[in-house]
Amino acid sequence: MAELLIIRHGQASFGAENYDVLSDLGRAQARAAGEWLRNMGWVPDRVITGALNRQIDTASEMGFDPEREEHAGWDEYDFGSLLLSRFEGKMPDLHSGDRKLHFRTLRETVFQWQRDEIENPYETWAAFVARVEAARAAAVDTKAKRVLVVSSGGVIGQVAAASLQAPAEHMMNLNLQIKNAAMTRFMFSGSMFSLNEFNATPQYATPDGFKLMSYS
């Protein structure tokens, strides 16, 4: 039996012009995750990320030795592009500090995307599902016993929901729960693939570690 451990990237730059940059907190979160895994004797045989800077830099801060592989199937869906399609090019103001509005709009937009109610999206929901599955299949097509992937909340939510054969909407319910640098673990062998642990953050389970926790 082998393990696929998917880590969500550390905190990125929420509300900034370029979101795809780790904050100082995000870098500290990544280092804490890597240190906890090493202390537990868990060292990966493979390290894979998507092509996004926040994923690549999280893997770098974790500090494991295997040469990093890259598969764009682990990239997050592009919320900004979905918003432009949903609102016909008129981007709503979601950077005014109202986090509830931001995440409510995110949830509603993804649900519409899943139901094919957004015209001409940059990527269809079916295409997103297919590329995430291709990335998952490539990660487990290996003789490695411990595979570490750094990805993003929507992708992790989709892999978890698919492994449970849950309705599409469940992906978003999972997505919005996932903490920065949280660990979601799957066991695999041949065609068997099952969820073992979801959204775990043991590296934050101390008074000092708790100060590192964030969701966005």
Score class of each variant (00 low, 15 high):
Met187Asp: 08
Asn18Gln: 13
Met213Gln: 14
Ala138Asn: 11
Ala28Ser: 14
Ala12Phe: 08
Asp57Arg: 13
Leu37Thr: 01
Leu25Cys: 03
Ile178Thr: 03
Ile7Thr: 04
Leu37Gln: 06
Ala134Leu: 10
Arg99Phe: 15
Phe193Arg: 00
Trp42Tyr: 03
Asp141Leu: 09
Arg185Ala: 05
Tyr77Phe: 14
Asn120Arg: 12
Phe64Ser: 02
Asn199Pro: 01
Ser163Tyr: 05
Arg136Phe: 01
Asp57Val: 07
Met91Cys: 05
Asp78Pro: 07
Ala205Tyr: 02
Asp65Leu: 07
Gly41Asp: 08
Lys90Asp: 13
Ala33Trp: 04
Val110Ile: 15
Arg27Gly: 09
Ser60Glu: 15
Asp98Val: 07
Val21Gln: 11
Tyr204Asp: 03
Asp78Val: 15
Gly80Ala: 13
Thr184Asn: 00
Met171Gly: 03
Val129Glu: 14
Val159Phe: 00
Ile7Ala: 12
Asp20Pro: 13
Ser60Val: 15
Gly89Asp: 05
Ala161Gln: 03
Phe14Ile: 07
Glu88Gln: 08
Ile156Ser: 02
Ala166Met: 01
Glu108Ile: 01
Glu123Thr: 05
Lys90Ile: 09
Glu133Arg: 13
Pro92Ile: 07
Phe193Gly: 06
Gln112Asp: 15
Thr142Leu: 09
Val150Leu: 11
Gln55Met: 09
Phe103His: 01
Thr109Lys: 06
Phe111Thr: 07
Ala59Thr: 08
Asp24Lys: 07
Phe188Pro: 04
Pro207Cys: 09
Gly190Ser: 09
Gln11Ala: 04
Thr49Pro: 15
Gly15Cys: 04
Lys211Ala: 13
Glu69Ile: 05
Pro121Asp: 10
Arg136Cys: 00
Ser189Asp: 15
Arg46Met: 11
Arg107Met: 05
Arg38Ile: 02
Glu108Asn: 14
Phe188Tyr: 11
Gly157Tyr: 02
Gln158Leu: 10
Lys90Cys: 04
Asp45Asn: 09
Asn199Leu: 05
Gly50Asn: 12
Ser151Asn: 06
Arg136Ala: 05
Pro66Ser: 09
Met183Asn: 01
His95Arg: 11
Glu117Gln: 15
Glu3Trp: 09
Pro66Asn: 08
Val132Tyr: 01
Ala160Thr: 01
